[in-house]
Design a binder for these strands. Sequence first.
DNA 1: CTGAGCATACCGAACAGTCGGTTTGCGCTT
DNA 2: AAGCGCAAACCGACTGTTCGGTATGCTCAG
Lengths: 208, 208
Amino acid sequence: MESSLPPSTAAKPSAVQDRVRRAAVELFANQGYANTSVQQIVEAAGVTKGAMYHYFRSKDDLLFGIYEHLLTLQREHLAAIVANDSPTAERLRAACLDVIGTSIEFLDEGTVFFRSAHMLSPERQLEVKHRRRLYNDAFAALIEQGQREGIFRSDIPRAVLVANFFSDLHYLPQWYSPEGPEAGSLIAEQLTDLFIAGVTTTDETSGH
Amino acid sequence: MESSLPPSTAAKPSAVQDRVRRAAVELFANQGYANTSVQQIVEAAGVTKGAMYHYFRSKDDLLFGIYEHLLTLQREHLAAIVANDSPTAERLRAACLDVIGTSIEFLDEGTVFFRSAHMLSPERQLEVKHRRRLYNDAFAALIEQGQREGIFRSDIPRAVLVANFFSDLHYLPQWYSPEGPEAGSLIAEQLTDLFIAGVTTTDETSGH
DNA sequence: CTGAGCATACCGAACAGTCGGTTTGCGCTT
DNA sequence: AAGCGCAAACCGACTGTTCGGTATGCTCAG
């Protein structure tokens, strides 16, 4: 949207590059990676194949770029939140709100992220898996701390608790569609509420 | 598993048909629909292409068969559970346990179900969408009843509550892998617990 | 005149689906 | 029991098309 600025401004990531990326994300999200031809992408972006292959080494590069973007973003956000010195419950809440918010902001990217992981080259699949695991572990560590403090229930394996939250991120692109401007953060709060409600210790779940 | 019976027994769904189906599900789950060639399927099934096309009209038919199977199964189960005259809370719990159990039993089918919906022919996408909606509505009706009874919280849109549960089904094939024999139903109970805990009315969420 | 930025024509591989043909199983006549 | 006839089951080479990627050519700023 800031593409209407005079071309003199800022470091250009090349208009072509950007348009190809945007077109690719949208097409991948709507038709799947394997079902989208390079020809379609360049047509949607209004460039030629030669131009595209000038900036990207392969179709796979285009796909991996999406993962790279989201993974980096989420890692940075979570690291910042965890580093806070607020109470565990608040940090968990902040982490949930943030990652749901991000997922809503990048809905198409999320769709591709969760649907097309198996289309990446094997090495890159490993890379993605690894970095996802790091995120997962950092998140799980938050929950573990809460469990030690006695505020989160311990009668259910931590892996299940974590999966129960991550599932919301997975499913989000499948049912959420942006309506109002604020609707996004509202959904984020509601889903976070539900998760926290499920994970918080109650009389029945405290000790076991 | 009952394939070891003498060939004299029962109505045969044709051994070839069955082996093709199994091979297709596994390959679709592991590599995605678009990335799996008909040649791979028939090789894995140990049949020829001619044989396959004798029983299936197209590759798309193979895919739709998976949806047909799961949709029919889940619809029947839910209908039976809803028709019970037990209390709402118990029926919701039973519905959750059942559909998670089914999803675990048919993990590969689930993987394909959630990952490859956009590969179906447009008409069949609509059909699947329609039947999913019916299931969704029946499930939502259960929750609505609980809300009217005051046992389920009403401060969060019903659609969000439902999505919060369905997300678990979506994510399941991504993280769950069958270990012990009983582990499956244990997971089902834990996830159901978490969902119910989140959706049940507490002091803070009762009125609004 | 030179090289970055792009356009165009093209390549080999792989794909879903087809089709003419062969084999197999089975009811029926003799 | 033996042979006939015929349909269903199955085979696999083949086709037209599409794909990701490349090779080469053009253009214009510096």
